[in-house]
Computed example of a mutant assay.
Amino acid sequence: MIRIFDIVFSFAVLLLVSPLMIIAAILVRTRLGSPIIFKQDRAGLNGDVFQIYKFRSMSDARDAHGNLLPDDQRLTTFGRILRATSVDELPGFLNVLKGEMSVVGPRPQHAGFLKHYSKRQMMRHFVKPGITGWAQVNGRNSIDWDSRFELDVWYVENKSFWLDMKIIFMTMVIVLKREGISAAGHATMPEFRGSQLSVQQKD
C-alpha cells in the first residue's frame, strides 16, 4: 500500500509542479551553470547507497589553490531561495518513483555518515529514506544531529500510514512558513562526525 501511495503521490506532484521545475532548471542553468541536477551518494534502506537528485543550489567557486570554498560562500541568494522554498528537493520525487526513497521517512544522509552511527541511530535505515520525515517537521535543520536521529528512530518505531499523512500535512505548513532551513550559524547542516552518545552506544 505504501509503495502504491508513493508512486501515485510522486507522479501527481511531478505532474503538478512540472512547469515550476522547468523554470527552476532554466534559472539554475543560467545562474549557476551545469550540471543542473546535483547528485550525491546517500545511504538508504539497510544502508545501501544510492544517488539522490536535487536542483543545484551552490556555485563551484574555488580558492586560489583550486579548493571549493565553504558552503556559506558558495550558496548564492538564488540558491537560498531554492532551499527556502524546498524547490531544490523536487527532483527527489524521481528517487521515489525509482523505489530508492519514500515520500515519508528519515531524510537520507551522506553515505560517509554510516561509520559514525550508533546501533540505535542505524535503526533509521530500517525503512526507506523520505522526501520529508518526522525530524523535518520537528525542527528540520535547526536541531542538532543527535536530536534529529532520535526523531528518525522514533518514526521507525511508530511508523503508520496515518502518521505519514500527518507528516505530509505538517510539511506543507512548514514549507509555507519557511522554518528550520539552516542550522544556527551555518549555511547548511554541519557534517556529522559522531557524537558522545553514539560513541557510548558503540561500546
Score class of each variant (00 low, 15 high):
residue 138 N to H: 14
residue 138 N to K: 00
residue 140 R to G: 01
residue 140 R to I: 04
residue 142 S to N: 08
residue 143 I to R: 04
residue 143 I to Y: 01
residue 144 D to N: 15
residue 144 D to S: 12
residue 146 D to L: 05
residue 148 R to T: 09
residue 149 F to I: 15
residue 149 F to Y: 05
residue 149 F to Q: 05
residue 150 E to D: 09
residue 150 E to L: 11
residue 151 L to G: 02
residue 152 D to L: 08
residue 152 D to V: 10
residue 152 D to P: 15
residue 153 V to L: 08
residue 154 W to I: 03
residue 154 W to D: 09
residue 155 Y to V: 02
residue 155 Y to K: 05
residue 155 Y to W: 11
residue 155 Y to I: 02
residue 156 V to N: 08
residue 157 E to L: 13
residue 157 E to S: 06
residue 158 N to L: 04
residue 158 N to H: 15
residue 158 N to Y: 05
residue 159 K to Q: 15
residue 161 F to N: 04
residue 161 F to W: 13
residue 161 F to S: 09
residue 162 W to C: 08
residue 162 W to I: 15
residue 163 L to E: 11
residue 163 L to T: 10
residue 164 D to E: 07
residue 165 M to Y: 07
residue 166 K to F: 01
residue 166 K to D: 01
residue 167 I to W: 00
residue 168 I to E: 08
residue 169 F to G: 01
residue 169 F to L: 14
residue 169 F to C: 05
residue 169 F to K: 10
residue 170 M to P: 00
residue 171 T to N: 03
residue 171 T to V: 06
residue 172 M to Y: 01
residue 172 M to L: 15
residue 172 M to V: 15
residue 173 V to P: 01
residue 174 I to F: 00
residue 174 I to H: 00
residue 174 I to N: 00
residue 175 V to F: 03
residue 175 V to H: 01
residue 176 L to C: 13
residue 177 K to S: 02
residue 177 K to D: 10
residue 178 R to T: 11
residue 180 G to A: 04
residue 180 G to Y: 01
residue 180 G to D: 02
residue 181 I to W: 07
residue 181 I to N: 03
residue 182 S to K: 06
residue 182 S to F: 02
residue 183 A to K: 02
residue 184 A to D: 12
residue 185 G to H: 12
residue 185 G to L: 15
residue 187 A to H: 10
residue 187 A to C: 09
residue 187 A to N: 11
residue 187 A to R: 10
residue 188 T to A: 08
residue 188 T to H: 11
residue 189 M to L: 14
residue 190 P to W: 09
residue 191 E to L: 14
residue 193 R to I: 08
residue 194 G to W: 09
residue 195 S to G: 07
residue 197 L to G: 07
residue 197 L to M: 10
residue 197 L to F: 12
residue 198 S to I: 09
residue 198 S to A: 10
